[in-house]
């Protein structure tokens, strides 16, 4: 422990964030404005997620932090250390052991369970922002459920590319009401948003917005009858653990066109390797 208040933020700030979380849970998919604080890390490094985590943490928590699925990348390591120091919580890389998971742009492959909390770091919380830059207008569009423009964007994808080319940040509709930005998770992860037993909280620090999905909430990816949503992934198996149903990163291994595909979720891959599963290049990697 250190001389910081528990979980860094002062009590008044945490109360303000907590009130916003409760309203966000009561109105699934709606973006609740909150008075985001400056954190000891730059915007874009998860200040929204960090503030949510700080407001939710209890000393008994086991915290897991992932960045694009990996537990060992800079962002994940520094946020984990931050809360070890300011909240004195235990940390873990095991998805099943974690009680609170802060994530940047992935949902763990291992299914979440009731009681777990998943905190997303969100850069642009407004799904309509790149279609309409004015906040006053997008707020009106949400109020009136005026989401035709989003379907025009998806249609233009089809007209230009023959398919919906949006592969991450894929817009969803929550409980038939609000169109929501699921943060830049790959669309492969979108089906996991719906009907999850875990509480999902989304925090955008620079944009000062919090939104949430309570457990067992219906989340539908936008699509068309003749172009149904397709949660695609690279058409390979993991080269380390052989998993055929996990999201893969492509890694260039030489300048001769050599490449390998590995699970983006490092905990999932390591667990499978530990259980004896082997992929195409497992010996090389060992």
């Amino acid at each position: 422990m250190s001389d910081y208040n528990f979980a860094y933020l002062d009590e008044q700030t945490k109360r303000m964030i907590r009130r916003a979380i409760l309203k966000a849970l009561a109105i699934p998919g709606y973006q609740v404005p909150f008075a985001s604080r400056e954190m000891p890390m730059p915007y874009g490094w998860g200040t929204g997620g960090v503030q949510l985590t700080a407001a939710c943490l209890v000393p008994e928590d086991r915290l897991k932090v992932i960045d694009q699925g990996a537990d060992d990348t800079t962002n994940a390591v520094s946020i984990r250390k931050f809360f070890q120091r300011t909240a004195g919580v235990d940390v873990t890389t095991d998805t099943t052991e974690a009680t609170l998971i802060q994530t940047r742009h992935r949902i763990p492959e291992t299914p979440l369970t009731q009681g777990q909390i998943l905190v997303y770091q969100v850069p642009i919380p407004e799904p309509l922002r790149f279609l309409e830059p004015r906040e006053t207008e997008t707020r009106k569009m949400h109020e009136l459920e005026e989401y035709g423009l989003m379907h025009v964007k998806l249609y233009e994808d089809i007209a230009r590319h023959g398919q919906i080319a949006t592969s991450y940040d894929y817009p969803v509709k929550v409980e038939g009401r609000y169109v929501m930005d699921p943060s830049p998770i790959p669309k492969f992860d979108n089906p996991k948003l719906s009907d999850s037993p875990a509480i999902q909280l989304f925090g955008a620090g620079r944009e000062q917005r919090i939104y949430a999905l309570p457990p067992y909430t219906q989340v539908v990816s936008l699509d068309f009858e003749d172009h149904p949503f397709d949660p695609s992934k690279a058409d390979h198996d993991c080269d380390l653990c052989g998993a055929s149903a996990s999201y893969l990163d492509e890694v260039i291994t030489d300048d001769q066109g050599g490449r390998m595909f590995v699970c983006s979720d490092t905990d999932y891959c390591t667990t499978r390797t530990g259980m004896g599963h082997r992929g195409r290049l497992a010996e090389d990697a060992a």
């Binding site: 945490k14 000393p59 509480i199 457990p215």
Partner: peptide, 17 residues
């Protein structure tokens, strides 16, 4: 600090369920 964190966690679970 600790009690409000623990209390809120229960309240949040109640609001989420």
């Amino acid at each position: 600090a600790i009690q409000s964190a623990q209390g809120f966690r229960i309240l949040m679970q109640a609001m989420a369920h």
